[in-house]
Design a protein around this nucleic acid. Structure first.
Lengths: 212, 212
DNA sequence: GGCATTACGCTACGGGTCGTAGCGAAAGCT
DNA sequence: AGCTTTCGCTACGACCCGTAGCGTAATGCC
């Protein structure tokens, strides 16, 4: 996950159990202490490993937290719920549930903040967290195109820009609602959000289910 | 700004020049060192004040950076550009320009991350940064209602929820685009974003200017 | 002008974390 | 067995934090 061993065929292998214990301990520490209170010494103690073992696998606090938080997003799925609106509402609610957990709240924004000055860290975040979410957008969009719910875009470059835009609008809105505004992205909010995303602000107020 | 002196009528007054120097030095340090590299000792040296002076005014790194970053958002304005679409594009471009500056990039997400575990800090962010942006949304929406570009919402509670939703969608998308995706929110992106926000994803692809 | 009051600059300090070095023991592979 | 790498442990210098103490500077009030 963090260090590629091309073919370390000899010597004592690294303990996979230690990896899991360290990442779990990191999440526990995030819940109890938050980002600024988290220390690598404390994580090592919680995980039952020596501090030096921790430093052999991760370069620092940032990289460790990226990996610990990334595992939270493994549960994201996009089952076919019949319509684009239903698909969006479903995945956004999952996303919101993850962001509601304290170990994600404190850790995620902190590593993003540090990534603004740390290109390798940004790449790590992209590979571990962002790419998986982009894939969900691609899948949901392809499904909606097959259903005829979205206008086709033949130009690949234009299509790529649209996917990026949708991703930033969806993830950005949920993150901002949860972490900046500090209010829950509950069903009512997600419903209103999906409606605006699909039909626009100029559409007449709700009244019922969204049907694109 | 940070400590209200109800009526400190006696004694030596606090130096307003020191306040300005400290906040400017904080932004300089954010540019050069980033959030994690910023130390209060360094800021004090840059500002030409003693470290103790700094601690008399701010409780810690987080509060200081909130105030230093908040000043960046003072320049946000919402002139009447004739249409809702033009108003949105204009203010979003301003917002994106602020977020493109390194002193905002590294500092903003870091304090938001810490605010997830620090209620007073969250309140400080709300009062210094978020409220001003909410006011822009309120103003732009009222203007659009007068123009007949948005459907009226008589219920105040419903109207308040709509304003919050718009705010999270606009600010969230720009922040996510700039800080997570790491791509510039340039004119082309802002134009596409505004189009989706007003007309929805289901609308036919662009071709020209947006006219709601 | 004198006095009380507050802000300021400076120095020094204990406490804590960081990240690394060095060592002996453990756990694999051939 | 023998080789190689990991692991746990201890210790260490370096750095930053946040505060205390002191003498000095700047204001308002009498």
């Amino acid at each position: 996950m963090q260090s590629r061993h091309p073919a370390s065929r000899t010597g004592r292998p690294r303990s996979a159990a230690a990896d899991a214990a360290i990442l779990a301990a990191t999440r526990d520490a995030l819940v109890e202490l938050g980002w600024s209170g988290l220390t690598l010494s404390d994580v090592a103690t919680r995980a039952g490993v020596a501090k030096t073992t921790l430093y052999r696998r991760w370069a620092g606090k940032h990289e460790l937290v990226v990996d610990a938080v990334a595992e939270l997003f493994d549960e994201l799925e996009l089952p076919d719920r019949g319509s684009l609106a239903a698909d969006i509402e479903g995945v956004v609610l999952q996303f919101a549930a993850i962001l509601a957990r304290p170990e994600a709240r404190s850790g995620l924004m902190a590593v993003v903040a540090e990534a603004t000055r740390d290109e390798p860290l940004r790449e790590r975040i992209r590979a571990s967290i962002v790419d998986r979410q982009i894939r969900l957008v691609l899948e949901g969009r392809a499904r909606a195109l097959r259903r005829g719910e979205l206008p086709p875009e033949p130009d690949p470059a234009e299509s790529s820009r649209t996917v990026d835009l949708i991703f930033d609008m969806v993830a950005g809105a949920v993150v901002h609602r949860t972490l900046v505004s500090g209010k829950p992205a509950d069903e009512a909010w997600v419903h209103s959000f999906t409606r605006v995303l699909l039909l626009g602000l100029a559409a007449q107020p709700d009244g019922g289910a969204v049907q694109a």
